[in-house]
Write a protein that binds this DNA or RNA. Structure first.
Lengths: 363, 363
DNA sequence: CCTATAATTGAATCGCTAA
DNA sequence: TTTAGCGATTCAATTATAG
């Protein structure tokens, strides 16, 4: 076997093996960017049933199981340490995680000397709901982008490209993107998903476009089915992947071989400026445009309701959202509460939709 | 000085002093919710304060950097430990921070035994741009919501209120809210902002509405100009503030004094079905709404069962409760019999849940 | 072949109470 | 402490099936 550490770095390869072991064999200061999607250390209980009684296909693979936070932290520090060594002086590192592990990752990075440049929120357009109604819908994941050290003055950030991409306003730290589903999601011969946590290529597209240059080498120590490699090749970058599961590694190689480096504009990406923001009625109460106790009236003035602090309405014995209560009082199957309800002003009645416009104007 | 720790907790007060010192004087298990917006002056050029308020020397060698994080971590663990002690067994804690400190906060919380329920992203509609064009616009902050421990099964979450608030779909983990500006932003006599990081009351409104009940006690160990207290009072909750800066504390007291609380009836929120009084199916038979021998039918009409006098059902060789028999016939792990079974009327089939509502209306 | 409806699915720390 | 019973609970998007 060739000594990877003293040979020039081979690129566009998928190394088989434990990521820390393989990393230790790579030469110092040889890659321009690292993208890492490590195990999240989910600590799940028993089966979770949907309301239709079907079972949620959970991530219960062995590779995601750790005995303790201490064990997870030790693993995290080990691979981060090697990544830092392998990075060029002007390189940068990205990690992605959820609330289960992102605090561990961020702290370890800071402890090892990495200097955080941004944390980025991936807002999912179509997240899995909270089936039991016990928490907020977990609708995002977090990425951390960091330089090797505080002293590092130079790193690649294609500011103007990002700005142009985002309709000529600065790219923000929250990105709205869909999950990887449909055609993009790689399936095995059995029709099941080849990997439980395949990331959308649009996400990697944006990361790579933002923080690397054509010809750069991008290392992914948790290669999986090779989203990083596919995006890198498509965008004219080189990749180095590490994956210990032979099945995943093979899928990745096949996938990347089929990628034609191409003009990237056919990748579906939603700019955060255009990302539509829904204004819930409750936001009017939060913002103080309506107060708890204020009265709303129907178009004919024959119905009246009182606003509550949670944004619901009360009318007699009935309660509900602006839409539900409108439908209920009109005995209609549905009702657009925004155009139905009015409030009193000095100039007479006004639609609550006007208040929504006020809120939208600030967005 | 009275001994706060053994006296009943005084509420609607702003304690002056170092937060850890004051916290140590508060009684065990006495508050329902904590909201904490700790300082995040981590290596930003500002002074980093040790728990004893001495200033950490800003030196650039690696050892001191570690020392700085260690000092911040020690401070963080100290106040989090006290907050955990002061929380009631069914209480929960919220913290807010940015990438400078949120990873330290989250890790410390997990290390101390807190169990993360959600991380929440506050998307700012009007963030400060990145003037130098060197990074992404830092357009969000992160909140962490946690229970005291993994074993804690109960915590207040007004799921249905949040859903009604959000146009009848589940509230997600990303909240879009404007910064605190304009009229809401408190200014001193010199016209300058009274506090550098005043949070919008809308943010506290949502936190408090989501995770507390009227009459609850909410503790804020970094009270500042009292946004938590103002929102708490407006929403019929009690507050306990801790602030070491006398100027901030005075501003907070003046501000809160001017707040007019909402009427109690406007603070009622959309109720959860789980909290409704339980009605045994047999009560329908007792009340004569159904008679022994009446037939019930499945949603598709392909199953039929007979009501018995004791409130159990019979279908062929099977007997059981409305739930058990439904599950049995559908070969499902569980079944909500109330929404499953229908009975015949002149107007067609009706759900037995409508009969339950009739009973509840008389209670 | 087109349209309407039904089924499937996604990194998930997912119930409560009383006996 | 454990078990059993009651009965509450989902959004967006794609794919499959029915008409």
């Amino acid at each position: 076997m060739t000594d990877l550490k003293t040979s020039p770095l081979a690129t566009n390869v998928v190394h088989r093996g434990d990521c820390i072991t393989v990393l230790k064999g790579l030469p110092d200061a040889s890659v321009d960017m690292v993208f890492a999607d490590p195990p999240y250390n989910l600590q799940l209980g028993g089966d979770l049933l949907r309301p239709d009684n079907s079972v949620v296909d959970a991530v219960d693979d062995d590779w995601d199981k750790f005995d303790s936070f201490a064990a997870y932290d030790a693993f995290t520090r080990a691979w981060l340490t090697e990544c830092r060594r392998v990075l060029k002086p002007e390189g940068s590192l990205w990690v992605i995680g959820s609330y289960h592990n992102i605090f561990r990752l961020g702290s370890a990075m800071q402890d090892l000397g990495f200097w955080v440049l941004n944390d980025i929120i991936w807002r999912k357009t179509n997240p899995m709901p909270n089936f039991k109604g016990t928490r907020f819908t977990n609708a995002h994941e977090t990425l951390i982008w960091a330089a090797r050290s505080r002293e590092q003055k130079r790193y690649t950030f294609n500011y103007d490209a990002m700005k142009a991409f985002n309709e000529d306003v600065q790219m923000r730290s929250d990105w709205t993107l869909a999950l990887c589903t449909g055609e993009e999601r790689i399936k095995g011969e059995d029709g099941k998903k080849a990997h439980p946590t395949q990331k959308p290529e649009a996400l990697l597209h944006r990361v790579i476009m933002a923080a690397s240059r054509p010809g750069d080498v991008i290392l992914d120590p948790f290669f999986g089915t090779g989203t990083t490699g596919a995006a890198a090749k498509r965008l004219g970058r080189h990749y180095v992947g590490i994956e210990r599961d032979e099945t995943y590694a093979k899928v990745a190689e096949t996938r990347i071989a089929a990628v034609i480096p191409a003009a990237p504009e056919d990748l579906k990406v939603m700019g955060s400026k255009r990302a539509e923001v829904k204004v819930p009625f409750g936001a009017l109460v939060e913002a103080g445009l309506l107060a708890p106790g204020d009265r709303l009236y129907s178009p004919k003035g024959d119905r009246e309701a009182r606003v509550r602090a949670d944004g619901s309405l009360v009318s007699g014995e009935f309660t509900g959202s602006i839409h539900k209560l409108g439908a209920l009082l009109e005995n209609a199957p549905a009702c657009n509460g925004w155009t139905y309800w009015r409030f009193k002003t000095d100039q007479g009645f006004k639609s609550i939709d006007a208040l929504r416009s006020e809120i939208r104007a600030t967005m």
